[in-house]
Simulated scan of single mutants.
Amino acid sequence: MNRPARFEGPKRPTNVSLNAELVEEAKRLGINVSEACQTGLAAEVKKAREAAWKEENRAAIESWNAYTREHGLPLAKYRLF
């Protein structure tokens, strides 16, 4: 199931290894490292979910693309342009 990547629930402490210079620069710039990590992780989870969905539905997508290549869009005659 392709659920939205919203992670608003409770947080838990997690150990993450990050480049020390990068963390220090982030702190100097006032970046919330935990929030930035969560944002990046959420983006990666979303990307992985999308890739999994595309793979799970690859056959149907290819079938539909083949149909439209052969027959055109089903409602093309109603297009205004």
Rank of each mutant, 00 (worst) to 15 (best):
A59M: 07
F7T: 03
L41D: 07
F7D: 08
A52V: 06
E50W: 00
E50Y: 00
A26G: 07
A26Y: 01
E24T: 14
F81L: 08
K27T: 15
A59D: 12
G9S: 00
W53Y: 12
S63C: 08
A59Q: 10
T68I: 15
R28C: 12
L73C: 04
W64G: 12
K54F: 03
G40M: 00
K54H: 06
A26K: 01
R3N: 11
A60D: 13
G40R: 09
C37D: 03
E8G: 15
A51H: 09
N65M: 00
T39D: 08
A20D: 06
A36F: 04
R6C: 02
A43Y: 02
E21G: 15
G30F: 11
R58V: 07
R49H: 01
C37M: 15
N57S: 03
C37L: 15
V33M: 05
E62M: 05
E70D: 03
Y78Q: 00
L22D: 02
E50T: 11
P13T: 15
A20V: 09
N2K: 08
E50I: 12
G30M: 09
E55C: 06
K77R: 14
S17A: 15
N15L: 09
H71P: 06
G72E: 05
P13Q: 15
K77M: 11
K46V: 02
M1Q: 05
K47C: 12
P13S: 14
V23W: 05
A26S: 12
R12T: 09
T68W: 02
K47L: 12
R58Q: 15
P10K: 11
R79E: 10
W64A: 15
